[in-house]
Write a protein that binds this DNA or RNA. Structure first.
Lengths: 228, 228
DNA sequence: ACACGGATGAGAACAGTGTTCTCGAATGAG
DNA sequence: CTCATTCGAGAACACTGTTCTCATCCGTGT
């Protein structure tokens, strides 16, 4: 890695600034982001933006990647702040961090967990940060091996078991299929509740939002067999 | 109810046709629906659309309402086709119907369960059909009163209990707070799994989609205490 | 049966959009 | 100190939603 040239530095600063302004607009205008409006805010002509992003889609993609990374960072940091053997504490901390980030950045959250634009293929750069949250949950459960409560209830069908086996093998995981299955259930549920809350589906239904969320996370911890 | 005049009839037919074409466009272009493109498909000039819908938003709203109603109708029909006392059969039928509709109409599904456009207030016409699915689930569970398995695990906190009590009272429901809570969990989860599947979050993860979905629905039936 | 009036669609216009291209000017690199 | 690369401006093009005005049509009330 050679030292970045001055030009490269100011260029990347400009890219960051464009994204910052775009994020601000996103918060008020949602996904209908206007390049010209962003340019105006930067005292720049719209075509100048094309020196930094080849298209509007590219800018949105950059914002999406940033959002994934920010969300993953918040979750990771929250997990790291809890003693390793406090599994339920870590579990709840991750959930709360994801929720806090989502509520603080609803537009960006909608960008990554709302309906994707059709025929938009998620670039490879998004898959790793996108997987981060569930990997955190897997890690927490894996750290509890030996202490986990047994899983009762319906056995998995073979095709499903095969999918889970493959996922475990791909990452050299240590969980059993049944256990990973429960983590997937919890992961699904985490974003299910969050979508409902962020997208307004709980309006006029649930007032005690934070308690509602914690309750669901606890239930999922139970279902996954987290001890205590 | 007087007989609708001829003019009113052709007018409503034209409205339906506009929505049909718009739905077709929605499927390929997603939420960026172009009025002019719709008009072209109808051999009509764009401004003529304004005789039928006062704005693009109004057309989208109409599509949203239709989507809610279609989804609710599919779910209701599926429930009605199963013997009343086969609770788990009805439960699964509703879930599968919702999933089938969502997979058959991903764009419309995204319209109603994806990220809402900011500052877009859901018109009153949407709340009733939007609530239909959860009401079906509540009905199924209510039909099982006396046969339901007891709910174990963490008691509800007071604020949450109050929210649930209010929801029950509003509709003169017969469920206990704990039971309604579980129905809400199941409802949340239903759309959580579906969002993940429809929005592509299961790509390269789960191949056995139908089994995955059924498995989650069954787990939720267990959690809710549905007998058998 | 007939004239009337309201409903309908065409077309032009306006403001706004993403994107491409060309052209000076600046400025870091050799 | 020159030169090539990078940058931003500006015009242009093909779109978009929306508003007006203007004929034309045709069901309706008499």
């Amino acid at each position: 890695m050679s030292a970045p040239s001055l030009r490269a530095r100011v260029r990347s600063e400009m890219s960051q600034e464009i994204k910052a302004v775009a994020r601000r607009h996103l918060a008020t205008d949602g996904a209908n982001l206007s390049l010209r409006a962003v340019a105006r805010d930067l005292d720049i002509v719209a075509s100048a933006l094309y020196r930094y992003f080849p298209s509007r889609d590219a800018l949105l993609t950059a914002l999406i990647i940033d959002a994934y990374n920010a969300l993953a960072a918040a979750a990771t940091e929250a997990d790291a702040a809890v003693p390793r053997d406090d599994l339920r504490g870590r579990w709840l901390a991750v959930g709360r961090a994801v929720r806090a980030w989502a509520l603080a950045h609803p537009a960006e959250y909608g960008l990554i967990y709302g309906a994707p634009v059709p025929d938009y293929a998620a670039p490879q750069d998004t898959v790793e940060p996108a997987a981060k949250v569930i990997l955190l949950l897997v890690d927490i459960v894996t750290d509890g091996l030996g202490r986990l409560k047994p899983i009762k209830a319906s056995p998995l069908t073979m095709p499903l078991r095969a999918d889970l086996r493959r996922l475990i093998d791909e990452r050299q995981g240590e969980l059993l299929e049944e256990r990973l299955d429960r983590v997937l259930v919890a992961w699904t549920h985490l974003f299910g509740v969050l979508n409902f809350e962020v997208f307004g589906r709980l309006d006029n239904m649930i007032a005690a939002r934070a308690e509602y969320f914690d309750h669901h996370m606890t239930l999922m911890a139970d279902l996954t067999g987290l001890p205590q």
